[in-house]
Write a protein that binds this DNA or RNA. Sequence first.
DNA 1: TATGAATGAGATTTCATTCAT
DNA 2: AATGAATGAAATCTCATTCAT
Lengths: 211, 211, 211, 211
Amino acid sequence: MSSRRAASATAVAPRELRARGQATRDRLIQAGAAVFSERGFHAARVDDIVAVAATSHGTFYLYFANKEELFRALAELVAVELETLAAQLPPLAADPAGLVALESWIAEFANIYANAGPIIRAWTEAEIVASDVGRLGTNVHAAFARALMDRIRSTPAVGIDPVVAAIALVAMIERTNYYALTGQANVDGAAVVATLARVTHAAIFGTSGSK
Amino acid sequence: MSSRRAASATAVAPRELRARGQATRDRLIQAGAAVFSERGFHAARVDDIVAVAATSHGTFYLYFANKEELFRALAELVAVELETLAAQLPPLAADPAGLVALESWIAEFANIYANAGPIIRAWTEAEIVASDVGRLGTNVHAAFARALMDRIRSTPAVGIDPVVAAIALVAMIERTNYYALTGQANVDGAAVVATLARVTHAAIFGTSGSK
Amino acid sequence: MSSRRAASATAVAPRELRARGQATRDRLIQAGAAVFSERGFHAARVDDIVAVAATSHGTFYLYFANKEELFRALAELVAVELETLAAQLPPLAADPAGLVALESWIAEFANIYANAGPIIRAWTEAEIVASDVGRLGTNVHAAFARALMDRIRSTPAVGIDPVVAAIALVAMIERTNYYALTGQANVDGAAVVATLARVTHAAIFGTSGSK
Amino acid sequence: MSSRRAASATAVAPRELRARGQATRDRLIQAGAAVFSERGFHAARVDDIVAVAATSHGTFYLYFANKEELFRALAELVAVELETLAAQLPPLAADPAGLVALESWIAEFANIYANAGPIIRAWTEAEIVASDVGRLGTNVHAAFARALMDRIRSTPAVGIDPVVAAIALVAMIERTNYYALTGQANVDGAAVVATLARVTHAAIFGTSGSK
DNA sequence: TATGAATGAGATTTCATTCAT
DNA sequence: AATGAATGAAATCTCATTCAT
């Protein structure tokens, strides 16, 4: 990933950490989140991260083999959270209760996105997508798409391709949150959640007759 | 004092170009497209670009003040193409003919995306979004959203927020093409277009009664 | 967008330096003095400086934001030394004791010039004069001229314009040392000091009757 | 001199020039004077020179083998002018008429300096002094010093070292004009000439008794 | 005689990573 | 466990000079 120097051969052995060490590592993780958010993976300099964490270069490499490793640590946290959410996608029902359930679930997604969004975004930087960490992102997306696809498939009389529709709807949900979060689109959070739910619902239940 | 940097502050004056110069400039643009596509903005080195264009470093800087300038040139081409397309969004009708018209339009989008996708992607790298070039991307997105919003508004009895829905649907169309293009999702192009059209159609006309 | 340049815009923050760092910084300053002396500001390459200092490029930029910054550090040292000397210009007296005092002072100037001359010379390169660092040189010259002018003014019955004469005599003292130092004029140091003192003395006290 | 590329092996053969060619060459010389004046030798880019001359790079190298060659052409013009002036230094006499004659001569020097000053300055850039062109400057200076020294020597009962004094006085005259010209010292031209004459006169005739 | 285009060595600067204490 | 210092490969950019027309 790094075009500069090959990643250190000796990865950092996951040591037992005492309280102080744990605290330092946490500070680095927090700092990483802040800096990656603000600048993206590439532009984030280890310099910035250690400055925010109020520690030194030497210490950084005590805990992480390289910059990517820290990013991966962050990304894995997010990935776990998102995959858990994906597993909790409720059954889809055509009635108003179904819409409400879906809306709650999307609200939860928006919630997670509000915190983790910048990390998710950094995942999509061109170079990263192809990398080891990038696969995490792909997997998360796939998990969502699979969950939604399963629900669509178990819905009778849907007029759309479940595989593609699932991908498209997940793409929509993710990306709309992105635009909302970055302020590129100036919209109200609640309206976003409501609309995403409605469009998703309509896509599944509103296309039945159009075949 | 620094005569070097000072001089370069002034971007390359847009000179009158003879045939040879124009050809070289074009070659650099093409090469830039190829390299940015493959590597993203950051990882793309001027070295790579001039290698592909079969010219020299010096020549590169004869035509572009820096890497960003070349990227901007490319981005502007794409932006024009996309804004033209946005202006051509057909009226939306509930009947099958309306769906077909929409599908054609989305097919055209997919078409453009197939060529320009990587540039569009590079637009979204965190640092770029905030930059001058980034604004191009934001504007393009806004142009699409506005066009779609106008159509939704002029459709009676829609059960969704036109502003948010427009943003969400554009996000979906863009991002799904992205996944399809990068192979992160392994799907058939025609199916993608058909599904995007159907979901969009359903979002607008399938949500009318659910209010 | 350009994260590199942007970061460097901020000059190197003056960190607290431990012993090793201080030593390295000092070595770079010494090396800078040597290289600027030999080649002048422009022809001096950072390459040369770090070679003399037996350190690396990276280290150079750890201590100085760029070549100019190192030059400025050197120039400031010299400026302080010279301004101190300017403040020590003795009162001027027409008698032999006055001449001796003046001669001692000029000898001290020659002494400083022997070490710092090349830096002083580099100050006068056309581009530098107009720059930030250049102002240092102008200020130093002004300090000397002012000191001398004050002495001339407090001398009764001088037949010359104190302002212009002060400038001219300082110019003479500086420039003659320059020629002596660069070997463009092959003269004995002691003779230079004696002659400069005598001419200066004569200019002030030997012009009284010629009005 | 040029750290970049070895000077072209094939110097430009001094061709017979037709009217058009002569005019172009003249334009380049004028442009060179302007640009070297403003920026000094190093910072002057061939780019700037041809822009001012409203011609092209190719044409430049049709008339001058390299940048230095153009500078030398300019320097030689100045050198001739100055050496002519040096030869015209009047005899020095202690009486008022002698002072007046000296003043006229210095006025003429100031006159020439007002035009040629920047070229003279560029001569003193560290790298140039050591070069081929640099020798021109050294020679000019020597010519002045020799002329003045001859006059001092033929003056009875001078209390100063003729060699050193001549160098010092020439240094003074040159450098004071420099400061006056660059505006580093804000003084009136006539006062400068008058003062320089008086100081020079006093140095020679006012030091006689102080031995 | 003129010129626009091309060249490429060389200069500055950055920053992830390693080292010595 | 921590840290300040050092490294150096790699990236960007400049400009005197040559080339092809």
